[in-house]
């Protein structure tokens, strides 16, 4: 495989979550993180999972990633049962999870080096392409601790994109960033999604963020974690987080979200 071939967009995958339940045993007893949850994400769709903490949205993401196993129910990607992690489903975590012992390029290369049928020269070429895509071409040799929070998440994005997955799973990736940086990243992620068609599952507790990015917003409620409502978002792209239509849809969803919460 050449670098050019490694950069060809694969067909985005369709995800099917069917009747999945998952519980955890904690010190305070059993926590039903997910209770009989079913969800279908079509090829190339951008779906945002929204809900208060403890509603199981991150648990679902970990199950799709193959990092955890459900108690019951099945998950599949393009009809293939998900039984473990796989390069076609890459994850971006809330904390960047970059490796401090490698420089920026080394981090982006980590997953590529595990991909067979590529020469090292091609791997570097592919990694540099993605660094360019996230706007960090000049930081290939930088150390992780030298980057700002936003830059770290950009590197994490490049690292997740580099093995050319068909699905991108994002677990509150912008939660710890300041508002200005986040807004820039909303623009960038929409551009990148348009350029490199992926099926994206994006977990957030920020409703406006979800409306800004998603084709569909899926609302979760906690104890036990269930899907409550779904809202298609048909606003034209690229979307501006500060637009009035976006804000009014977001407040509608926020009202729905509150109605599902136990009164505080």
């Amino acid at each position: 495989m050449s670098a050019t071939e490694a950069l060809i967009n694969p067909e985005p995958a369709k995800l099917v979550v069917d009747g999945v339940s998952k519980s955890f045993t904690t010190r305070r007893g059993k926590l039903q993180a997910l209770d009989n949850v079913s969800l279908t994400v079509s090829e190339g769709e951008f779906v945002c999972l929204v809900g208060p903490s403890g509603c199981g949205k991150s648990t679902l993401l970990n199950l799709i990633a193959g990092l955890d196993v459900p108690d019951s129910g099945t998950l599949s990607s393009d009809g293939q049962l998900i039984s473990g992690t796989g390069r076609e489903r890459m994850v971006m975590f809330q904390e960047h999870a970059l490796f401090p012992w490698l420089d920026v390029l080394g981090n982006v290369l980590f997953g590529l080096k595990l991909k067979p049928n590529l020469t090292d020269k091609d791997r570097v070429e592919v990694a540099k392409y993605y660094l360019h895509l996230v706007g960090l071409s000049n930081f290939a040799k930088a150390n992780i601790h030298e980057l700002s929070g936003g830059m770290k998440q950009r590197v994490a994005l490049a690292r997740a994109l580099a093995p050319n997955p068909r699905v991108l799973l994002m677990d509150e990736p912008f939660a710890s960033l300041d508002a200005m940086t986040r807004e820039q990243l909303y623009e960038d992620i929409q551009k990148i999604w348009a350029a490199r068609k992926k099926t994206i599952v994006f977990v957030t507790h920020n409703v406006r963020e979800a409306v800004c990015l998603g084709d569909r917003v899926v609302l979760f409620s906690p104890n036990p974690g269930r899907i409550r409502e779904e809202f298609p978002v048909t606003l034209p792209r690229p979307r501006d987080i500060n637009s009035i239509q976006l804000a009014s849809l977001a407040s509608e969803i926020t009202r729905a979200l509150k109605s599902h919460l136990p009164t505080a």
Binding site: G66, L67, A97, F99, R159
Partner: peptide, 27 residues
């Protein structure tokens, strides 16, 4: 634990995780 989880999503496992993640991370 996040390092090992992140590495797993990129296809690292077994000895590779040990030599390429756990060992350098504890350097």
């Amino acid at each position: 634990p996040l390092y090992v989880r992140a590495a797993r999503t990129m296809g690292s496992k077994g000895t590779h995780t040990l030599t390429h993640v756990i060992l350098p991370a504890s350097l």
